[in-house]
Every structure is written in C-alpha cells, then in structure tokens.
Design a protein around this nucleic acid. Structure first.
Lengths: 227, 227
DNA sequence: CGCCTGGTTGACCCAGTTCAATAGCAGTGG
DNA sequence: CCACTGCTATTGAACTGGGTCAACCAGGCG
C-alpha cells in the first residue's frame, strides 16, 4: 500500500544514453565522466545550468538554503538517477556529493537540441520531469501533514525501494541529511529510528556509523503510519 | 527579493488555446466550457485523467488526503491557470471548486496527439510541468523549514502576485484552505494574520468574511521572513 | 429573527526542538 | 599499537511553537 514513493509506474529512461541515442538522431550527445569527493559541491543554486548529470556510483543530495542556514533537501540521487535537469537556464538547487561519487554528464544544450528534433527524447524529458514533480508532490504531503514517525518510516521504505532489491541497505547519508530531507531535526530522526528498532521493524547490522539497515516492511506497514 | 514564488520567469503559454493552436498543426483541440458549483469536486485522486482544465473564472484547490482526513493542498488554481495536466493516466490530486468556477477543458488525449507531432506544443507542455515542479520545490522548503509567520507572509505575497496588479486582493479561499496549503492549522493562520495586521503589514477592507486584503509589501519584506 | 458557517481569540497541552552529556568509530601520527 | 582528535550518533532533560479545545462573535440567509 505504501511501497514506491517515487513511483516507477511510468517506464522511464534509466540512462542518459537512453535519452540521447534514439531513432534517427544519431547525434549521440557527448558523454564524459567525473568524480566528486565526499562533501564537494557539484553545482550551486542559481548557477547557470550547463550540464545534466547521471549518478554512476555514490549518492548526491540536492537542497535549498534559507539565508540563516535552514536547509531543505529536496531529493537524494542514487546510482542510476539523473539530476540537474532544470529546463530553464539556472539550477534551482545546490547539489553535493554525499560520499565519493562519479557521474556521467551531458551538455544541457546538446540535449535540448536533440529534443527539438526527436519527439521520443522530448517525451522522455517530459516523463522525467513529471516523475520529479510527482515525487515533490508526495513529499509536500509528507512535510505538511505527517508525524515524525510516519516521515522516517516513509523515508526507510523509499530508500529500501531504491537502494536494494529488498531488506538490507547501507544508507549513504547522515542523520542530519535525513532530517533536512524530512523537515525534522537529527535528534528526532535518531529517536524515531530507535523506536522503530525497539519495535522490531528495523535492525542494524554492522552496528552503527553509516549503518546497514535491515527493514521489516510488514512490521513497518502494520504500525499505523499513513500511506 | 521574495516576490514571485511561482516564477513567471519563463514565458509560458497562458491559455489552452495557446497550447493547441500552433504552426502547422491546425488541429485545434476541441474546447468546451463547464461550470462547477462552490465546493464541488472536479476530479478525484487516482481517477483516469481524461481532461486538462483551464480556469476561466473562480478558483480551484487541488489536494491529497491521508486516510484519517489530514489534507495537504498542493496548489490553488486561479483565473488563467491550467491544471489537471498529469502526464500519466491518473490524476494525482483531488480538485474542487473553491467558489463557483467555470473552466475550459480539452481532452488530454487530443492534446497528447498534437504534442506528438508539434514540437512547440511539446515544449509548452514541458515548460508548464517545469513551472509546476518549481512551485512544488519552493513549497517543500516552505513546508519543511519555515515558521508559521513566514509561511503566511509567503502565501500573501504569492497571492498578491497572482490575484492582482498589486495591493488589494480578495482571497477566495477559507482559513482552513490556507492552513492546509501551508501545513498549519486554521487557528495558527488566523493568529499570524492578526499579528501581521497589528504590525501594519496588512489591512482589511470590507471587514471580515472572505476578506479583501490590503498588503504592504515593503512592511512585509522588512519584517525578517526568509526569501 | 434565529440559525449556520466561518473567523477570532484565549488557555492549555504536547510533539518535536533545543541544549547538553556521553559514546562509538575512523583516522593520524608518534 | 595505542593515545588523541574529530566526527557522527544516541539519549536525556527542559523548553516552546504551534496544535487542540473551547468560547465567542459576525455576517449571510431562510
């Protein structure tokens, strides 16, 4: 009933290459690789959007800041995810590598040019944007109306769906990152995780420090915790 | 510095007719009108998305519900706004007329068909979706990290930008609607408005009951209140 | 006029924040 | 190999912004 916040209901292109290489437009856009160190910025909010990125390995956070330092993480990008696809000329988030991360990148312009002539590429762009929109819409509900426990449970289920086939996962992000994603403080996140652990919905493997988490979806589902 | 949450930075199609009637595709999609009574549902979440709508006059709220009744309004749609444009086959929100509202509507399918062959229509669809995404992203920051006063101030500025040239506006929605949009309770919204009134950032004209509001942008801006 | 709906205001309460102490690891370098 | 430093995470205790509950008030309308 909960499962799959970032609905993959619509089939979507899962690689930049898929986006660029189609039907007759053989102009496959130039791909290069790059590696960012843990904690380093990939691009800043309001910077001109020159590239579109796909995570090859690692993890990325994208966020907005208020001038007094309050931070809201809008999304985590994991292996396979495409990000930086603002259509408009500026990035609307700052992005940073959460751990050492390598990305593939494409010039935005070349992508747009291809999209102009290739309807399929255009459709894929729209579909990706729609997926992002859907995620943001669901996240608004979470941020506006869910309790701390519901938020953390939703987060675990989302990550479980994205990080692994099922069951065990190594969360790359810190408690603070999780908190800023969920609109909470890191203490509240920690407490919620402890509670879920007590209740047995959740196990820790090699204990502590960027943990491996074992998730019991059924237990979690049977807790109350809104869709 | 705050001004324009729903950035109109990108030029965007401001009518369904704009979307359908372009270059060579003379197949202008069929337009019809319809009027919804105050409070009536236009479509429900998870319903098949058959039409795309544009508000001719009136106002619409679109929201998600949790099973226990908690509600999050994702957006208000005012005269000129297009909504119901989920690309995907289901609506992701429930929408209701806030006051008596007339809309124009287009079959989604015919729009999609046109988009298939007309790059400009396709681009407009993408641009509209991107605008929605941007609004949602900004709203996540508001819901996750802003104080009640900041939220209400942001709401007033947004509405001021959308409802009128500047200064006076008649809010069509109730305190409860505003609260569910901002992730607050109606009492908190009421208190915040009172505080802004005391401080002189805000005046009421024909007093109370779906008020006309007079907004002093400068006063509001000079209060603290994050971008 | 009297009901009904929506808005305001007050008093109290609590979920989540803030502040603070403690502890587990990961380096680092002697 | 172990001491030392610097994280990050957990947990407790006290505090508070916004929620809850409740009284009251102002129109609009039959």
């Amino acid at each position: 009933m909960f499962v799959r916040i970032t609905a993959d209901s619509t089939p979507r292109p899962n690689s930049l290459r898929d986006l660029g290489m189609t039907s007759d437009s053989n102009a496959l856009v130039s791909l290069s690789q790059f590696t960012y160190k843990k904690g380093s910025e990939i691009y800043g909010e309001r910077e001109p959007a020159e590239y579109v990125y796909q995570v090859t390995s690692g993890a990325v956070r994208s966020y907005k800041l208020l001038s007094d330092g309050r931070r809201q993480i809008g999304a985590f990008h994991l292996a396979g995810d495409i990000f930086g696809l603002e259509n408009g000329n500026e990035h609307r988030f700052t992005t940073e590598a959460i751990v050492d991360t390598t990305v593939r990148l494409v010039r935005r312009q070349s992508l747009e040019m291809v999209a102009e002539s290739d309807a399929m590429v255009a459709r894929n762009l729209l579909s990706m944007t729609t997926n992002n929109l859907q995620h943001a819409e669901d996240h608004m509900l979470l941020l506006g109306r869910k309790t701390s426990l519901e938020r953390v449970a939703a987060f675990l289920l989302e990550m479980d769906g994205r990080l692994t086939a099922s069951g065990v996962m190594a969360l790359p992000m810190s408690r603070r990152d999780i908190a800023d994603y969920l609109g909470l403080t890191l203490e509240t996140v920690s407490r919620a995780l402890s509670r879920l652990h007590e209740v047995g919905a959740l196990g820790f493997v090699g204990n502590t420090q960027r943990q491996i988490v074992l998730l019991d979806r059924h237990k979690l589902a049977s807790l109350d915790l809104q869709p």
